[in-house]
Each structure stands twice: as structure tokens, then as C-alpha cells.
Amino acid sequence: MKYFNKLPGFIRTPSGLEWVLFKKLPLIFSIGTAAPCAPMLIIYLGNESLSREQQQVIYQLLGVLFSVWFLVGAIAIGCIVVTIMKGPAYVADPYELPTENKSLEQYPN
């Protein structure tokens, strides 16, 4: 038995924006990671003790950093889903339906 039976005559959809975006994700990830990390390193390495305002800036930058990571991950998942959906169509194995029993249709449940 073949597990993946491709639908005969199915025309595969050409790739579009998802591949362009998927190829740019490493650059977006690296720039999005470096931008908040640079000020955090400057604050950490420039001071021996951190003030309350500096700690707040660090926490906000950590929030930006995690938001960028979440956004890149969500976009990557979306690109993968679109790529899979544009792939070839598959046919499931046929399922024979049971014969109808007309006597059961006379009485509602």
C-alpha cells in the first residue's frame, strides 16, 4: 500500500512571497536580535551598579527582543504552512460506505 497517493492531474502552484520572506528571516532575526542587545551590553559593561531607570531600559529591551523572536517564529511557521499548502495534493484511500437501512430512517431519534 502506498501511503502518499498524489492526485493525478494536479497542477502545483508556483512559489510566491513566502519564499522571498522565508529567505530574509535570518537577516531579520539577526538584526532584530542585535538592535536590542547592543544597548543592553553598553549599559551592563558601562556601569558597575545599575540604577532603576537603567534596569527598566534593560527590561524593555528584553521585551522587544522576545517580541522580535516571537514575530520571526510566527512568520516562519506561516511561510512553512503556505509552502505545504501549495505542494502536491494527495488522495486518501477509499472508504466504502455501509449499505443504507431504509427501516431506520422512518423513526426519528
Rank of each mutant, 00 (worst) to 15 (best):
Y3T: 12
K6A: 07
L7T: 12
G9L: 04
F10I: 12
F10G: 11
R12A: 11
T13R: 09
T13D: 07
P14N: 03
P14Y: 00
L17W: 11
E18H: 01
W19K: 15
L21Q: 04
F22G: 04
K23R: 11
K24Y: 14
K24S: 15
L25N: 00
L25W: 01
P26T: 04
P26F: 03
P26W: 02
L27E: 13
I28D: 01
I28G: 01
F29E: 12
F29T: 08
G32T: 02
A34R: 04
A35P: 02
P36Q: 03
P36V: 02
C37I: 12
C37R: 05
A38G: 05
A38K: 06
P39W: 00
P39C: 03
L41G: 15
L41K: 15
L41Q: 15
I43S: 00
Y44E: 10
L45A: 13
N47L: 02
N47D: 02
S49T: 14
S49H: 12
L50M: 03
R52F: 14
E53V: 09
Q54H: 02
Q55G: 08
Q56G: 06
V57Y: 04
Y59I: 07
Y59N: 08
Y59T: 05
Q60M: 11
L61D: 01
L61F: 03
L61I: 03
L62Q: 10
L62D: 06
L62K: 08
G63D: 05
L65K: 00
S67W: 05
S67C: 10
W69L: 15
F70I: 11
V72T: 02
G73F: 09
G73W: 07
A74C: 13
A76L: 09
A76K: 03
I77D: 10
G78Y: 07
C79N: 04
C79Q: 01
C79I: 02
I80M: 09
I80C: 05
I80D: 04
V81S: 08
K86W: 02
K86P: 01
G87N: 00
P88T: 09
P88Q: 11
A89M: 08
A89Q: 07
A89E: 09
V91K: 12
A92V: 15
A92P: 07
P94L: 07
Y95N: 13
L97Q: 06
L97P: 01
L97F: 06
L97E: 05
L97I: 06
P98W: 02
E100C: 06
K102F: 08
K102L: 09
S103G: 15
E105Y: 11
Y107W: 14
Y107M: 13
Y107E: 14
P108I: 02
P108H: 03
